[in-house]
Design a protein around this nucleic acid. Structure first.
Lengths: 132, 132
DNA sequence: CGGCATCCGCAATGATACTG
DNA sequence: CAGTATCATTGCGGATGCCG
């Protein structure tokens, strides 16, 4: 314990900076629907409606917003076929595949640790706790 | 592309389930302050006020909430010394060290990829995009 | 010092309706 | 089908004040 003895601003990178661009991207990929979109797209290309069905519970608006954010981050690739009715396909970019892997890694680890976590909760009588 | 041909509920685990407990934990560790707490605590034990100073910009309330959530998840260990004035120390549990590592891995990857991401944005003329 | 209770503004999210 | 626009609601997150 007892970290550095100076009063430096602390921590590599500037993850701690309020308006840090990487924080933005982190928020996008770990957002409520961002995680699910990434995991879903790891399985391959999906159309808009496919994603809605697969994810379940996401509103049109939020899915569109999430996809746009990830597209702007060069994580999701959007390909619109100029036909009628519209046909749009979403997939992961090479960059996207890398993040998605890490996000799923985290998600998988948590899922795998849930038994331990829930056991710890029972032992301490702790509630699932607030915080969103 | 063209994923599975059946209409299975989709995806290993049930990350996609609405009331999935692992989603809860995922939200905790990737929350605005959760990420920062984990990264900070990787450096060692901190007192409440230390964390506030190190993280910067976090309110008392949110830091307390975040710590409680992570404590309930058995990710953060809280040790209160019965002295006056109060002296409370926060650290990562073994479980916590594992998640923290993965979270930081993700954060580091994003930071490292920011040049590519920002370049992609300029090429496509995309804005940093909304979504929080 | 390390909290908890309360109040409140605003952004995020959701439901619905409409368009190309 | 794939969105956009609008409105209603929720709940995060900050500020303040009090307590052990």
């Amino acid at each position: 314990m007892t970290m550095s003895t100076s009063d430096e601003p602390l921590l590599r990178g500037d993850l701690f900076a309020e308006a840090c661009p990487s924080r933005e991207v982190l928020r996008h990929v770990t957002s409520r629907w961002g995680v699910l979109v990434l995991v879903a797209l790891r399985r391959g290309t999906h159309r808009f409606s496919d994603l809605r069905r697969v994810i379940g519970g996401v509103s049109e608006k939020m899915l569109a917003q999430t996809l746009q954010a990830l597209e702007a981050d060069a994580i999701v690739l959007r390909v619109a076929h100029p036909v009628v009715p519209p046909h749009v396909e979403y997939s992961l970019t090479p960059l996207g595949r890398e993040v998605a892997e890490r996000v799923q890694d985290l998600a998988d680890w948590i899922e795998g640790s849930m038994p331990v976590i829930e056991q710890a909760r029972r032992k301490s009588g702790a509630q699932p706790a607030r915080l969103g």
